[in-house]
């Protein structure tokens, strides 16, 4: 067989194969077509795409599907926030009203001011510390500062500060709530941006017990209760609590607190 014939023959075979496969692919794509709502794709593109799961669905595309088809709330994506909600609303032709931004805040003021009962040596994780005698801290309610929330945050918005307490960077925080879920002691909670005054202690222990272990813990002295002009602070079970609806953010309780465990931000 001469060279040109070989060439032509092989080209013909390959060309024929390509054609056949091409036809098969076209037929298959027509026959087995999955109908995807184009809206879902559009919405998915708007979403941040970090697949953090903070919305409660399996990921961004899953959330998009539910927004388009199952009437999931438009503001369901805490990472994207209001901007994304508005854009989704634009696509779907729905109105969105702006909700207030919420950020987690740390309900402990102990850190280095709280005594350690023993020297912990082991893996750096709050949950692991909790398995040993409910943590090394003298206070059973406080933050252990081992950074489980830091590792839970997909946006690098939390860091453990020098006082061994988590610090939240609001510019990076997307309010996804993963840190709140990860904390074994429930130190972190959401608070609205407008709520300025917070009690940064969770200890329900008596004043004497708190004083023995922590310089900054709430001792239930009720000075804040007396200082409040609008009756928004109440001490229940040796711990001050602020009624955010009544609070006018005057800061009088913050000044009065001898332990410095009411904070204005």
């Amino acid at each position: 067989m001469s060279m040109p014939t070989l060439l032509i023959q092989s080209m013909a075979i390959l060309g024929g194969l390509t054609l056949a496969i091409g036809v098969m692919l076209i037929v298959a794509s027509k026959k087995f077509k999955v109908d995807v709502n184009p809206l879902v794709e559009e919405v998915t593109e708007i979403l941040p795409g970090v697949n953090c799961g903070a919305c409660g669905y399996a990921g961004c595309s899953d959330f998009a599907e539910h927004v388009v088809e199952d009437n999931a709330p438009l503001t369901g994506c805490p990472v994207g926030g209001f901007d994304v909600a508005k854009e989704i609303g634009g696509i779907l032709g729905k109105e969105v009203s702006e909700g207030e931004a919420e950020y987690p805040y740390v309900r402990c003021n102990g850190g280095v001011h709280c005594v350690d009962r023993f020297n912990y040596e082991g893996i750096e994780d709050c949950k692991a510390v909790m398995m040993l005698s409910e943590g090394e801290k003298g206070c059973n309610y406080g933050c252990m500062g081992r950074g489980t929330c830091v590792r839970a945050c997909p946006f690098d918005a939390i860091h453990i500060g020098e006082d061994r307490l988590p610090k939240i960077n609001k510019n990076l925080c997307t309010s996804c709530g993963l840190c709140i879920e990860s904390c074994p002691n429930d130190i972190l909670v959401f608070a609205k941006e407008s709520e300025k005054v917070h009690v940064v202690c969770m200890s329900h222990d008596k004043g004497k017990t708190v004083k023995a272990v922590c310089e900054n813990g709430c001792i239930g002295c009720k000075l804040c209760e007396k200082a409040c002009p609008v009756d928004a602070v109440h001490v229940t079970k040796f711990l001050a609590e602020i009624d955010q609806e009544k609070c006018i953010s005057c800061g009088k309780c913050v000044e009065k607190c001898p332990q410095g465990c009411i904070e204005m931000r």
Partner: peptide, 13 residues
């Protein structure tokens, strides 16, 4: 490495 603690931790989880 705190191997046993990690194993305990995973068992707990």
């Amino acid at each position: 490495i705190h191997i046993m603690q990690l194993l305990q931790y995973s068992k707990e989880a």
